[in-house]
Design a protein around this nucleic acid. Sequence first.
DNA 1: TTGCCTAAAACCGGAGCAAA
DNA 2: TTTGCTCCGGTTTTAGGCAA
Length: 568
Amino acid sequence: MRLARPLPPLERGRGRRGLCGPALHLRQLLALLPRPRGPYPLRLPHARGPPRSHHQGAVSRPRAAASVALLRPPPRRRGAAGTDRPDGGARSRPRPLVRGRERTLVQGVARARALCSSRAAAFPRARSGPLRPRRATQAHPAPLRAGRLEREGHRAVARGAGAAHVRLIGNKTKLLGSIQRFLEARGVHGGTFFDVFAGTGSVGRHFRRLGYRVRANDLLWSSYVRQLVYVGCARVPDFSGLLELPQVRRRLAGRRGRAEREALGTAPPGQEDLYAAVAALALARPRRGLIWRQYAEGGPAGRLYFSDENGRRIDGAHEELLAWRRDGRVGQDGFWVLLASLLEAADRVANISGTYGAFLKRLQESAREPLRLRPPLLDLRSPAGRVYRGDANALVRRVSADVLYLDPPYNQRQYAKNYHVPEVLAELHTATDLRAYEAEIYGKTGLRRFEDRRSEYCRRGGRRGGPSPCEKAFRDLVRAARAEHIVVSYSEEGILDREAIGAALAEAAGLPAFDFERDHRVISHRRFRSDRNRNGRVYRVLEGRAPDEVGEWLFYVRKPRSRRRASA
DNA sequence: TTGCCTAAAACCGGAGCAAA
DNA sequence: TTTGCTCCGGTTTTAGGCAA
């Protein structure tokens, strides 16, 4: 595992991004499922934002509206699921919409018609069973869907033995294939790929599988730990020192140990020790530690993020893992792998409804399930990447790359505070004074201040017509970037508007203006909406779009060598 | 077709800040 | 001092996935 040198203390401000998703509920880890390629991008949740007065577009409105109308699915017959809903059958699949040079309008229309007419065949209902691999280079991009996993998502995975699982937040898009094609259409086929707001790291892992040398960064510990494992891990850590401990051997040889090991399934060649280590950790003696006290049922804080038993088991496993590291029984690599396994297991039994912004008042069924650790699915065939945990704007000045991928936060939610529980679990090993650390936990939901993990990209601000903190940070980042190819993924509903992003990229590349026709794409999908229409509430409908339709933007710019030197 | 379960965005109230 | 806006913390709802 190649670990980048830890960064100096983080300055307050720019470049923060939580799990981006996305997501601890960790936006994530699907890219490591056993398939060679496949677009499974994940996004962060939206926050409410002020209405946009108009839909800024590089394509004329009549043309866009025509495209949207043609891409709308045919009306569904009554009797099908959801057809009598006031939203007119919201269960219909989202409609892919790609504009621009890779597909002409005529081609797009023809494809849209084909898609609509063959929708049922193209997107059969998900069902359990073997998952079919999907190539990222397939002719049709995967449909985008709001806030849901595809078949390979958590439910299916959770049922499969030994598979990595994580509930995702905000994964409203499936963009990996689109990003890959977007780059390939511009002649980019390899080199170093820097995902500076990595979140779950799904994009970085995807490009790692394609042979890129990936650099991944995020500010959150919970994201960092996973990326050390899924992006930075080059080989299976050595657990021989742990497995020769008499108590560990006894534990694994016992009835529960054998059952636990069996439940994990067959280990891939060379990973038998990893599976045994995970089983040993899963059987750690439960303890009443910080997680139980602060976040579990029965704990004195009264926060219902975990059941009583799971809270104690998380504490027991965490404390045992720390002891193993302290005694030299596991090395740093092994520590990260086991910690990632624990983080994912805890996430699966968290009593929440998507984010950790609030716990549910009663334990939901999944939270009553016993904590189950699973070995992370390591990608050992692709080149290992480097992982950072730091300020994006500072880091792009230090780390050069062929491709810089930017997927900054685009809403006003600070992710550290929406995913504080996994963040606490992930960073707890860094606390030198546990009592002082615990004393800083406050509020109904057990937040920590996380001042060092606030992101300028979540700040709208900018009254009186001036640029927002978000826009300032973005302009600074692309100006300072030391990369030839810059790709930006951003939500249509985000803080930045299209013109601001284009202007910043043009300025960074020394262009008079950004060429939206050539280097900008919109991928359309359906917005997830949990609220019904009530009390006269009016939901924003973007101009030229169907109700609940929202787009994901892709931007590209090539930075000439002179600008890269100048910005360094 | 039914019904359970989950996701994740919206709601709401309050604090803080800057302009008028 | 008032007004209007952003930001934050806490909570809930329900569309849609999925299994039976």
